Simulated scan of single mutants.
Amino acid sequence: MTRHKPPVNSLAALVRLTRPRQWLKNGLVGAAAVFSGTITDPVVVIRLSLGGAALCALSGAVYALNDLHDRATDRVHPLKRDRPLASGAVSAGAAWGLAAGLVATGLTVMAFVSTGAFVTSMLYLALNALYTLWAKEQVILDVLTVSAGFLLRVITGGFLAGVHLSPWLLACTFLLSLTLALGKRRGELNALNEEAVNHRKVMSDYSVLFLDQMIAVVGSVTITCYTLYTLLSESGRANPYLFASVIPVVYGLLRYFYLIYHRQAGESPETLPVTDRPLLAAICVWLAIVGAALYG
């Protein structure tokens, strides 16, 4: 019986190429508005919605371009070989066309909404190009570059909302994203074992012990930084009950450590809030406390 292959360049494959599951990260554009108390302003919500959609287009283009660059190595990866380009479900020409269209659309919307957001979006694209072409193979710089991408999302949100960005918010964002990036590297190293170097050369410069030490240090600093944020920042001083949100943050990070150390689940941190109910519950409790403290 002949097995029929799915059609090349189908709509489903093109959408999958942009990795919609990763778009959740772009929710960080709303962080500055939430902590500044302006998220209830309808104009701010509209600007954030347009900017968030534009950032999803830009990040989708980044993922498509990254997969174009890595399609040869992805074909021999146990999981990544099923990606649209590596599996042949999307042609290189279609991927280039999709990426170009998404970049043009995303930048046009950003330019319409905010000049500052347009500039940070350009920086976001440049940063990801640097990561794909060079930084992803540089030990430590690879995870720092990933964390900088999260930071640019928050800064873009500050321009979209037209609010002052707290240095505490930026520090917490950077440290938390760095913790997650290190956990992801650890998950990749564990999942691929000796084959890890064949898929990414920089893995030869990492070891589980080295990553564990960095995760312990950065994770501890993240909790300390967020605690100080709730006490010393402008939002914290104006809303003393914000300190209560430290509890779900500490639990959430410790739960994350449990998942990566005992369940070896660090390779895909973006899926953990969906697949792990205790972690999802911690996030929901944190959102409830922050909402009550700032808007109650």
Results as ranks from 00 to 15, higher is better:
R16P: 01
L17I: 03
P20C: 01
K25T: 10
A32F: 05
A33M: 08
G37A: 07
T38P: 04
T40K: 12
V43T: 08
V43G: 00
V44F: 02
R47S: 06
S49P: 04
A53V: 14
A53S: 08
L55K: 02
V62P: 13
N66P: 04
D74W: 13
L79P: 00
R83Q: 11
A92E: 05
A94I: 04
L98F: 06
V103Y: 08
T105N: 02
F112R: 00
A126K: 09
L127E: 05
L127S: 04
W134Y: 15
I140R: 06
S147A: 14
G149F: 09
G149C: 13
F150G: 01
F159N: 07
V163G: 04
V163T: 01
P167N: 10
P167M: 07
F174T: 13
S177H: 15
S177P: 14
L180I: 11
G183N: 02
E188C: 06
E188L: 03
N190Q: 14
E194N: 08
E195K: 12
K201H: 07
D205M: 08
D205C: 09
D212Y: 15
Q213E: 14
V217E: 00
V217A: 09
G219H: 15
T222A: 04
T227L: 14
L231Y: 14
A238W: 14
L242A: 15
A244N: 03
R255H: 09
F257H: 11
Y258V: 07
L259A: 10
R263C: 11
G266S: 12
L272R: 06
P273N: 11
D276T: 04
D276W: 13
C284G: 06
V285E: 11
W286L: 07
G291S: 03
L294S: 11
L294P: 15
Y295A: 04
